[in-house]
Amino acid sequence: MKSFWIYYQKEMTEASRTYKWIWVPAIFLLLGIMQPVSTYYLPEILSMAGEVPPEAAALFTVPSAESVMASTLGQFNIIGLLVLVLAGMNTVAGERSTGTAELVLARSVSTIPMMTAKWAAMITLMVVSFALGLGGAAYYTYQLIGPLDWAAVTGGAGLYAVWLAWIVTLLLPLGAILRGPAAAFISLAVAGALSLLSSLLPSHVQWSPGRLGGMAAEQILGSGSISWSPILVAILIMAVSIIVAARLLRRSPLSPQS
């Protein structure tokens, strides 16, 4: 437990030295604020562009507060996920390519606390950034568009946090065998494939963690029920990923290129 805290503090220091604690939350907050603001000003933006006849612009109705929040999740899914994965891709792979991992593992230490600390640090950054972003979106939506069902938003946010968490966790085992960019690409590809699969064949993959993103949006929209199996599968994936990553790192502390 003591070594966990040492590694955790080291990861936090490293994240703030590489400015991750500024740019990741800032981007989530920007994405979150821009969605309600640009929806609110869409008629003005359309008329300023000049190509739309004023009658058509007048037909535009401001969408409901719930659907603005759901489309904010859509924004997080594209840029937010990309940013999180790119920010986290070198947590393991970077230490292998710089030789830090080999240095640490020269002593016979367990890699489990090290991996768990890396995971905890990544998740801390993710949760803080996502909470800021969604909080910003909720505040602006509330002020500009209308009241929200706070219980539904909180429930959706929880589901969405699990969705982000398991994808980011995939970076640990992938980073232990691949270089950073390859690990980032594969974890994004897995997330995309699973989420596509669950929207194409919803009845066949009830348990798939790919459903979590859609489930979060439905929750905010006030329809749909929470099913627990995707959440359990996501938690299982996270636990297995951390253990596998710890084993793999012990076996291959060095990057193939260095």
Binding site: I22, W23, A26, I27, L29, L30, I33, M34, V37, Y40, Y140, L144
Partner: peptide, 13 residues
């Protein structure tokens, strides 16, 4: 009042 936080965040980045 709505726009300045967006500009401020861009500036921070």
């Amino acid at each position: 009042g709505l726009i300045w936080p967006i500009i401020a965040l861009q500036a921070i980045l």
